[in-house]
């Protein structure tokens, strides 16, 4: 019995390791706490690596003009900039403007659709990284009922 105890424990340990390590391996990059905690859109863009972005008409931002419910605002972005590697969405007047950052690899089109929360009427800004250059565009959305209140 004592002889069999060691391999048994090793087996359990291995099973735990496999189970615990798997999600960590898949989610390679660390969550950018600094950028998500930034209070202004300028800081958030800087911290997320989109500082000094140049205005571009090659980013197609599809959003409603008016959002009746700020807790679900549909946002659809397509980048027509060749070599797009990532894009980030900002709601300029949210307490923390950075909403999400998307990193594209093999095969993914530079496109994303999602639903975001907006505290109040403000510009939704998208920043795109292509090579070592950054680009941006924005569009104002009128919010009738804010999405961050309690």
């Amino acid at each position: 019995m004592i002889l069999q105890r060691r391999p048994f424990l090793k087996g359990i340990a291995a099973a735990f390791l496999v189970g615990l390590l798997r999600p960590v391996e898949l989610l390679a990059a660390t969550w950018n706490k600094t950028a998500f905690s930034a209070k202004t859109v300028m800081d958030a863009m800087m911290d997320a690596g989109y500082g000094g972005a140049a205005d571009s008409t090659d980013i197609v931002l599809k959003v409603p003009d008016i959002a009746e419910d700020g807790s679900i605002v549909p946002v659809e972005v397509t980048s027509n900039i060749p070599g797009t590697v990532s894009m980030a969405i900002f709601a300029e007047k949210n307490p923390n403007p950075l909403v999400a950052d998307f990193f594209f690899s093999d095969g993914a089109e530079p496109y994303v659709a999602t639903h975001i929360k907006m505290a109040k009427t403000s510009t939704v800004r998208v920043a795109v990284k292509a090579g070592d250059k950054v680009y941006t565009t924005g569009k104002e959305i009128k919010v009738t009922i804010g999405g961050c209140g309690g």
Binding site: L26, L27, A28, A29, W31, N32, F36, S71, I72, V73, A91, N94, N96, L98, V99, A100, D101, F102, F103, F104, S105, D106, G107, A108, V112, T114, H115, I116, K117, M118, G147, C148
Partner: peptide, 14 residues
């Protein structure tokens, strides 16, 4: 094979 990695903040809808 990874095609898309995302980082989200609290402003992604419920």
């Amino acid at each position: 094979k990874t095609v898309l990695d995302m980082q989200w903040g609290v402003a992604i809808s419920q």
